[in-house]
Amino acid sequence: MKIRLAIITIACVLAVSVLPVMALDHTNLDENHPLQLQDAYPVSQGEFVVEAGAGFALRHRSSDHAFFPAQFVYGILPNTQMEIGTNLFTGPHDIDEPGKSGDVSIGALYNFNQETLTLPAFALKGSMQFPTGVDSSGIDSELNGIITKSFHRLSLSFNAGYQFIGGHNRDERNGRYKFVFGGGYPVGAPMHTRTILLSDVYLEQASRRGVKKAFGGEIGLRHQLRERLILSVGFGSEFFGPSGRSRFFLNTGLSMGF
């Protein structure tokens, strides 16, 4: 039932994407749009972006769920973006990791420089997650260092993050790390630059002590439908990790700039 809901929503996302709506920088990667990988670049100063999506996760020895992320991004200052967002899950009581259904997160990404032929681009992102969701307690906060370096048209990024878990129980850590590494390549460039093929791998420490780290991989794409409208699709699997890890997950979304 939950997965059916997600599939219907995904179909709606894809249907909306063929309508003549307005659209932005499709090479700019934000977390979960569609992969966990982020690049070191913010949206343009003065730009508003709405990102919304739908997806589902099929899990080992745990209940499956659908999810519906939504995020609002604004280029508030030069090289700085502010974000506010949330993620809704079906079966919200079954979510056993930080980031509960309905938690509101606020964050900011600052880009230090544009990459050159030798220098990578560097960025720092900080965010706070408030316990506004189901079964949520404590404020979580996260710091992420991001590096992006390109080799001709292949653009690679590395994210190193640490999450401070506010409302942790006795058997939970008060913080955990996460590393993501991946990249993007424009399929058909230089003649065609509308579609970026993406891939990443990630390693995430479990919030519960004594539970294995999750190691997963994802593949996806971002396709520029209109000047300010981007469709993103990603899927992946957690190869190793805790017993409740995702066997398969799919994430779709639309990003609209205005």
Binding site: Y41, P42, Q45, G46, P78, N79, N111, L119
Partner: peptide
């Protein structure tokens, strides 16, 4: 070229 001399801000801007 020294790396510092290549350091440049991105400064991408949205139209007015």
């Amino acid at each position: 070229i020294p790396a510092w001399s290549q350091w440049v801000a991105r400064d991408k801007r949205w139209p007015p």
